[in-house]
Amino acid sequence: MIFPDKNVLVNEVDTLVRKYGNGRESLLPILQDIQRKFGFISDFAMQEVAHQLNIHPVEVYGVVTFYSFLSTEPKGKYVIRLCKTISCELAGKDAVANTLERELNLKFGETSMDRKFTLEYCHCIGMCDQGPAMLINESVYTKLTPSKVIEIIESLK
């Protein structure tokens, strides 16, 4: 992931503001689009959004830090989020977690050097009946087993 150029960001925010409007209610959709496109929301992006919505950068920062799926730091191309809530825990989350750490050679919360993978935990994603479950970017993977995880990771590498 390369750091986006300032002008690119300004144009992007401009487009998004035109798409969603410049009210406070447009803040989240704008941030989500930036997150999706660049993989993170840089401090300049937050300030630019604040400027265009006529609010303060720190308010944008407050929103970005509030939501787990918005990030101020660059993440990998594939963000893997393993559910850590109780149903998945009981369904065998630990074995899946160990496999993920071993296969990716990453600890939870880390991003690989080549910026390809980010591994983190998340709270319930509503797949309690099909646990253990994880998200890779916006796709859900359910009923995970260590061997299934190896297969999935291999296909992404």
Binding site: H56, P57, V58, F66
Partner: peptide, 25 residues
């Protein structure tokens, strides 16, 4: 800072137990 003075230095950031009044970044 936000309503009375419109400067916007401080805001509550993060969530739940981790909530912290902080500055930008």
């Amino acid at each position: 800072c936000i309503d009375l003075q419109e400067v916007g230095v401080l805001e509550a950031t993060r969530r739940g137990y981790a909530t912290l009044i902080s500055t930008f970044m």
